[in-house]
């Protein structure tokens, strides 16, 4: 007993020294600190971590990209000639033409504010998992194109996709943009934001464009990032076991998609 760091009390029982007695308290504090830091999410990062596969693997998003490609010609024509512009594009035409010469940060703010002014509309539709399935109906949200959003509004992922395509028109590359699906801890719901990767002279900045008019700059916030997409890829930010390196041969992924 003489080797143990403590003393015997009056009853003869071993009593640890005061320094050791505080260890449980220190451990509890450490656990509390760790859980607090987990609640405040990490900033979003634009790296290849979590690369899951090509964008075309996600049927709904692939469908939106195809529709956008087919419909974008109308906006091209509209930008070239105001007389052939449908009414729902005239305000957007003015905005895009005025935004062309602005610095990137101003373009981002302008596009985000303009899109946020559009009407919110829940566009969920009930779908069966498959025609033969007896599972209950699943509610799915169709991701809108720019034209669809300008005509009838949309919900949060439609705000994000519209900002994505408008910034692409203003010269941002696909590598700079990702539509990010998040779990919002405070609201306890899923949310979509557009992440913009903005290299500057001093540092690389990541902006999260919100549908409430705020633009969050790479600081901690209350999001848990689930996945993100752009025209080229899907990134899975949660399931590390299924995530693969970008160096993984694409043929392996294609093999299963056919």
């Amino acid at each position: 007993m003489g080797n143990l760091p403590g003393n015997l009390n009056a009853a003869g029982a071993w009593r640890p020294r005061r320094a050791f007695a505080s260890i449980p308290l220190l451990l509890a504090s450490l656990i509390a600190l760790i859980s607090l830091s987990a609640t405040a999410g990490e900033p979003y990062r634009f790296d290849a971590t979590g690369y899951l596969g090509e964008a075309g693997l996600m049927p709904d998003w692939a469908d939106t990209m195809n529709r956008e490609a087919a419909q974008s010609a109308l906006l091209d024509v509209c930008l070239a000639d105001a007389d052939v512009c449908p009414r729902y594009y005239r305000g957007l035409r003015h905005l895009l033409l005025r935004a062309e010469g602005l610095p990137p940060k101003k373009q981002i703010t302008l596009v985000s504010r303009y899109v946020n002014k559009k009407r919110y509309q829940d566009d969920r539709t009930a779908r069966l998992a498959s025609p033969l399935s007896e599972e209950p109906l699943k509610y799915r949200s169709r991701w809108a194109t720019v034209e669809e959003f300008m005509r009838r509004g949309g919900d949060c992922e439609d705000y994000a996709t519209t900002k994505y395509y408008l910034l692409r028109r203003l010269g941002f590359s696909a590598d700079q943009l990702r539509i990010v699906i998040t779990w919002e801890r405070g609201e306890r719901g899923y949310h979509a934001v557009l992440a913009v990767h903005l290299p500057s002279d001093e540092a690389t900045e990541v902006l999260l464009l919100e549908s409430d008019d705020t633009i969050k700059r790479g600081r901690r916030h209350r999001y848990r990032f689930i996945y993100s997409v752009n025209e080229e890829s899907i990134w899975d930010h949660e399931a590390k076991q299924t995530s693969v390196s970008r160096k993984q041969p694409a043929s392996l992924i294609k093999e299963t998609s056919t």
Binding site: L52, G53, L57, M58, P59, D60, W61, Y120, D122, R124, K138, Y139, R140, S141, D155, C156, E157, I181, E184, E187, G189, Y190, H191, A192, E210, S211, D212, I226, Y227, I234, D236, A239, T242, V244, I253, T256, S257
Partner: peptide, 17 residues
């Protein structure tokens, strides 16, 4: 990968701000 993609697609995103 395919199972994960299908799972991710089922996430219902409708937040209004």
């Amino acid at each position: 990968v395919m199972e994960r993609v299908q799972t991710l697609e089922l996430i219902d995103v409708t937040a209004e701000k």
